Amino acid sequence: MVKIGNVDIGEFPLLLAPMEDVSDPPFRALCKAQGCDMMYTEFISVEGLIRDAEKSVQKLDIYDYERPIGIQIFGAELDSMMRAAEIVEEAQPEVLDINYGCPVKKVVCKMAGAGILQDIDRMVELTEAVVKSTSLPVTVKTRLGWDDNTKYIEDVAERLQDVGIKALSIHGRTRKQMYKGEADWTLIGKIKENPRIQIPIFGNGDIDSPQKAKLYRERYGVDGIMIGRAAIGYPWIFREIKHYFETGELLPPPTVAERVGAAREHLRRSLEWKGVKLGTLEMRRHYTNYFRGFPNIKEYRKQLVTEEDPATLFAVLDEIQEVYGEQFAKGEVA
């Protein structure tokens, strides 16, 4: 069994990556229902937390059905990170995770997220301070390095383990790559081969099918896989990978009814948790994947990403169910 500290997360856990404006409670509920073993919140600004900013504090919302769950923070100032760790502990997650991987400019320019990859000594110092500030197991999510010339992740893994982190998730790209090109898991595999490394190592980047998950599991020997973009609008990725691991067989894709049902449930939860304005707005990134591959879906998708009235949105989803359900029955929708 894989453990983060004393937290048991399964034999080969599938983890939901922390994604800003995506990994919220409505989305997490769907992923959990489809077999996700460990989830993380959206990343939370430590400066927002210690200043009691509404948006930051709301991201601390976690529910019993989500457990085990990690709350992820990002920041660059020692005192702020330590104070935020105390606030996170009060929310009682199983794990506190530090983001050293976000490549977005507004985060990086403050030497937070992947920005800290330019100063590894500082990264280690911040991490050690957080570990000492909380009784929660502390984990880290990061990248291979700042650019191709600074892929120090093998050394970083050892140093972070030495200051007390309990697991490390590694995205197989540098900050300079952002999300472009193919994720390189080679160094992730080398870290797993290092006899000094005793903590779980989770690989992240480009896992978008059961076959690829199995290949990378076997090739790189990771303790688990973290999935991000492939789960957006497609929470079934978790059940499909697990089924493939267990049987070697591919599950049929979700039916029209399952897709529409998930979209409806997601929208309902989003409206409930965020309110009408934000709930409808932040659902828009999910619709394309919910109905990917549907023929002539463009007009419906346009309505879903422009309409602001919830009743109308639910009506559009009902119409998709009616129209494409018939096509599915006739074998016209795969």
Score class of each variant (00 low, 15 high):
175 R>N: 13
175 R>E: 13
185 W>Y: 15
208 D>P: 00
194 N>M: 12
178 M>N: 09
176 K>P: 01
183 A>T: 02
204 N>P: 04
169 S>K: 05
166 K>Y: 07
211 Q>E: 15
170 I>C: 05
165 I>M: 04
173 R>C: 11
202 F>M: 13
207 I>V: 15
159 R>N: 09
167 A>R: 09
175 R>C: 11
174 T>N: 05
188 I>F: 09
163 V>G: 01
195 P>K: 08
161 Q>T: 07
166 K>G: 04
188 I>P: 08
191 I>Q: 03
179 Y>R: 05
200 P>N: 00
195 P>G: 07
160 L>K: 05
158 E>A: 07
170 I>G: 02
193 E>P: 02
207 I>K: 13
181 G>N: 04
166 K>E: 14
199 I>G: 02
165 I>Y: 02
191 I>H: 06
179 Y>P: 01
188 I>A: 02
175 R>L: 12
191 I>L: 05
187 L>W: 02
210 P>I: 10
185 W>P: 02
189 G>W: 09
174 T>I: 00
211 Q>Y: 03
196 R>L: 09
197 I>S: 08
196 R>G: 11
193 E>K: 15
164 G>A: 10
193 E>Q: 15
195 P>D: 07
171 H>A: 03
181 G>M: 04
192 K>W: 07
211 Q>S: 08
186 T>L: 07
161 Q>F: 09
187 L>K: 13
209 S>C: 08
169 S>D: 01
207 I>S: 04
162 D>G: 00
179 Y>V: 12
177 Q>S: 13
203 G>Q: 06
213 A>C: 05
172 G>L: 10
213 A>T: 01
193 E>D: 15
162 D>T: 01
198 Q>M: 10
180 K>C: 09
180 K>A: 14
164 G>W: 13
183 A>I: 04
208 D>N: 14
207 I>R: 13
177 Q>D: 15
170 I>R: 07
206 D>K: 12
177 Q>F: 05
213 A>E: 07
204 N>S: 15
182 E>D: 13
201 I>D: 03
184 D>G: 01
172 G>K: 11
181 G>R: 03
178 M>I: 07
179 Y>N: 11
194 N>V: 04
190 K>L: 07
185 W>E: 04
179 Y>A: 11
182 E>H: 09
193 E>I: 01
184 D>W: 01
210 P>L: 12
204 N>K: 11
181 G>F: 04
189 G>R: 08
177 Q>I: 03
166 K>L: 10
196 R>S: 10
159 R>V: 12
165 I>P: 01
182 E>Q: 14
168 L>R: 10
161 Q>A: 07
181 G>S: 06
199 I>C: 03
162 D>W: 03
176 K>V: 15
168 L>Q: 05
204 N>I: 05
169 S>N: 10
195 P>T: 04
173 R>T: 12
182 E>T: 13
163 V>H: 02
200 P>S: 00
186 T>P: 00
190 K>P: 00
207 I>N: 06
